[in-house]
Each structure stands twice: as C-alpha cells, then as structure tokens.
Amino acid sequence: MQKLIRIEPSKCIGCKSCEMACSFRHRGEFAPSKSRIINEVFMEEAQFITVTCMQCNDPWCMKACPKGAIEKDMASGIVTVDEMKCVGCRTCVSACPFGMIRYLDETGKADKCNLCGPDFPECVAFCPTHCLQYSEEDLPLREKVLRFARTMKDGQGEV
C-alpha cells in the first residue's frame, strides 16, 4: 500500500521543524535552504503552508529526464533520483510545475523528497503538532469531511 505525507495546514505553527529535520537527515546539517520540504510563513494572512513532493503518479520530472535517472516505484509510490545516472542537467527542475525537485550544488545532482526511503519520514517524526502525518489513507481529508458532516448534522432539526 502506498503511503504519503499528509499535510493539515490548520495545525501548523510555522516552526520549520520539518525543514530542519529534513536537512539534518539528508544533508547532515541544519540548513532549511536545502530542505526538500518547505514551510512558508505568511504572517499578513496568518497562514502557514507546508509543501513537498507528492510523488506524482505520472511525474513531470521523470518524463523530462533525458537519462532515465528518475524512477517511480510502483509498490511504494516513491519517485526517486538515481544519483548514479543523474548528470545534473536540471531538466527535471524546469519540468516540475511545483518546484519540488532542485539541483544541489554540493552533489551536482537533482535532489527531491523520497519519503526517507525505507525509513519513517524525518519531517513527520519531528513535526511537533502532527500537522504532518504519514499514512496510507487520506486521513486528514477524512477528518475534514467528518467535521463538515457534523456541522450539517448539528444544523438539522428533529425529524
């Protein structure tokens, strides 16, 4: 069964712990600028929005790669860059409409979220409010549906 990082923006506190955790795990240092997950703080609107690669079913980056260095594992759903094949041409960077794959100077390769491969995603492990969850089902969405349904229910009179 495929799992994904589910994001519930209403629980976010804008602490960027996800960015710190990601860069520490994958780059060996705390460097949010190199994080694969992005936590944007919009103070004026009081909104904190977190975005990361959603492991597309039909990935633009994969289709664009001239070297066949990007693969989607059909079992786990994870879209991975094979660093042995990647030549650092940045075609994928242009192709991704979400800006979720980038070129890293220090490796000379493309870099993107791989859900921490076989491990539990580090950003989810360090999210203090459970704004990020790692799940098979679309649980946060289910919660939203239920909240809406309950509101409907509360508005009903006696039958």
């Binding site: 506190i13 602490c15 960027k16 712990s17 710190m20 103070m43 009081a46 904190f48 203090p128 409010t129």
Partner: peptide, 19 residues
Amino acid sequence: LKRNKGCMGCVIACGRVTR
C-alpha cells in the same frame, strides 16, 4: 486570537497571532 505560532524550531507555540 487567530492562531498560535512558534519561533523557529519550537514545539510550544506560545506566540499569539491576533487580528
């Protein structure tokens, strides 16, 4: 109060975003 906010790396989020 609109929502709670943390500083960077925070788990507490004592910050109060207000309107």
